[in-house]
Simulated assay, not measured.
Amino acid sequence: MIHLERSAGRIRLVLDAYFMGEDVVVLLSGGDRPHLGTITAGARLEPLQTVQLQNHKEFYITEEIAVRLRKQFRGNFAICCGAHLDDITAEEIGLLTEMGVSLGNELIMFLNKPGT
């Protein structure tokens, strides 16, 4: 398992990645009420597939991470994301998205280390 965290202001995000053989499942959650909002799955040579539950907008994060991950990771992957902040501002939405993508980039760097 890989565990990463980021915080800024009242935003806190946690990324946990679990290996299933050569594949990986990524859980990205945070805010006041973590939940399952969006799931993006893919593989290197397959189109990405996103499931958006209700009106959740976390696909901005999951799809950006997925596009980058499929270029660097050989296995299949699923990225599940849900972060909610009461009365979130437009600035906080941008920051939350940036933090989520940054955590995804950190995960990719970790996955590219020799012996991982």
Score class of each variant (00 low, 15 high):
residue 45 L to N: 15
residue 87 D to E: 14
residue 95 L to P: 02
residue 29 S to H: 11
residue 112 N to D: 07
residue 65 I to S: 00
residue 2 I to K: 03
residue 59 F to G: 03
residue 53 L to K: 04
residue 68 R to V: 06
residue 102 S to G: 05
residue 20 M to A: 13
residue 76 N to K: 15
residue 64 E to K: 08
residue 80 C to P: 00
residue 62 T to L: 06
residue 75 G to H: 08
residue 41 A to Q: 08
residue 105 N to A: 07
residue 57 K to G: 01
residue 105 N to R: 03
residue 81 C to G: 03
residue 49 Q to G: 13
residue 14 V to Q: 14
residue 3 H to S: 14
residue 50 T to A: 01
residue 114 P to S: 13
residue 55 N to A: 04
residue 94 G to N: 11
residue 114 P to E: 15
residue 31 G to W: 07
residue 82 G to K: 02
residue 85 L to H: 01
residue 54 Q to L: 11
residue 80 C to R: 01
residue 27 L to C: 09
residue 100 G to S: 00
residue 37 G to V: 03
residue 110 F to N: 08
residue 106 E to F: 10
residue 107 L to T: 02
residue 97 T to A: 06
residue 56 H to I: 05
residue 112 N to G: 12
residue 28 L to K: 06
residue 96 L to G: 10
residue 94 G to R: 13
residue 6 R to D: 10
residue 56 H to Y: 04
residue 12 R to A: 12
residue 7 S to Y: 11
residue 66 A to V: 06
residue 1 M to A: 11
residue 91 E to K: 14
residue 15 L to D: 09
residue 66 A to L: 10
residue 20 M to Q: 15
residue 3 H to I: 15
residue 81 C to L: 06
residue 35 H to V: 15
residue 93 I to C: 09
residue 82 G to H: 04
residue 18 Y to H: 04
residue 8 A to I: 08
residue 57 K to T: 10
residue 100 G to E: 07
residue 79 I to V: 03
residue 74 R to A: 12
residue 13 L to Y: 07
residue 33 R to I: 14
residue 67 V to P: 04
residue 54 Q to K: 09
residue 50 T to V: 08
residue 83 A to M: 08
residue 47 P to V: 03
residue 18 Y to S: 08
residue 25 V to N: 11
residue 26 V to P: 00
residue 94 G to A: 14
residue 100 G to F: 04
residue 76 N to S: 15
residue 51 V to E: 08
residue 77 F to R: 10
residue 35 H to G: 01
